[in-house]
């Protein structure tokens, strides 16, 4: 039976609730494997494990629960060891490294911030700031919408302005929040947001961080900020060269 690994924590870490369960259907019971000063939070691995909603949630929930009592190094979803012995062996071999990471991340949590534009508010801004766009839009409107070429011309101008705003706003949100964080890790670009960035925040600084987010919201009605946290420090577990590609673009920028 292979072993699903959720995360690694200190063996002094308080135990999870007796009935904690994780991935699989029905959910498999959580176990703790201890080797020296480290404990791995594991369960049996389901045979047909896939990144399904239910299992992703289970992974996240186990880590969230374990994280309440103290720092846990979260594994990426879907990490499976051959058996329990393979897990404890890794704990033994890399004890120093993981203990160092646990010390470094102790008392800190991750907040992920995603920003999107409120489209019509952004279009208002673009029109307000750009007389040429405004004139073209007005002309199109008068002529019942404008010809295909007119529309393309207007749309292209607007798209360029919106795009410029996206990168301005992304840059600004990032730099306004960075002072409240211990480290920053920029996430991948995607269709879902104009900015995704994770901040490592000391638990007792979280209030300031959240206040800073709120201030940006108040000052920028055209921006929508979604904040998720406190989360296990997914983006800050591995600052070393073993870092998985693509997960870290900005980790260095915020390392200090």
């Amino acid at each position: 039976m292979s072993t699903y690994v959720y995360g690694i924590t200190a063996s002094s870490h308080p135990a999870l609730p007796e009935d904690a369960t994780g991935v699989g259907q029905p959910s498999l019971p959580i176990r703790l494997l201890t080797a020296g000063e480290l404990t791995a939070v594991v369960s049996d691995a389901p045979e047909d494990l896939r990144p399904k909603r239910r299992d992703l949630l289970a992974h996240q929930n186990v880590l969230a629960e374990a994280g309440v009592a103290g720092c846990v190094l979260p594994m990426r979803f879907g990490s499976v060891a051959d058996d329990d012995d393979a897990v404890t062996q890794v704990l033994q071999e890399r004890q120093e490294h993981y203990l160092e990471r646990l010390r470094e991340l102790d008392g800190k949590v991750e907040y992920n911030v995603k920003a999107t534009h409120v489209e019509e508010a952004v279009l208002h801004l673009v029109m307000a700031e750009n007389a040429e766009v405004r004139a073209l839009a007005e002309a199109n409107r008068r002529s019942g919408g404008g010809s295909y070429d007119d529309k393309i011309r207007l749309g292209e101008m607007v798209a360029a302005s919106v795009k410029a705003k996206e990168s301005d706003d992304a840059q600004r949100v990032r730099s306004e929040l960075t002072p409240t964080a211990a480290a920053v890790s920029v996430g991948p670009e995607s269709t879902g947001w104009l900015l995704s960035v994770s901040f490592l925040v000391a638990r007792d600084e979280a209030e300031h961080f959240v206040a800073a987010v709120q201030q940006i919201r108040d000052e920028n009605p055209h921006l929508e900020l979604r904040v998720n946290g406190p989360l296990p420090p997914y983006s800050f577990v591995e600052p070393g060269p073993a870092e998985p590609a693509g997960s870290t673009a900005g980790a260095d920028a915020g390392a200090q």
């Binding site: 990144p51 990426r76 879907g78 499976v80 890794v90 979604r226 997914y234 577990v237 998985p244």
Partner: peptide
């Protein structure tokens, strides 16, 4: 919102297989 983190970040240990 955390999908990207759960799937794409977090600790990777080469001795383990990933789904």
């Amino acid at each position: 919102d955390v999908l990207e983190l759960v799937l794409d970040r977090g600790l990777v240990i080469d001795a383990f297989v990933r789904v």
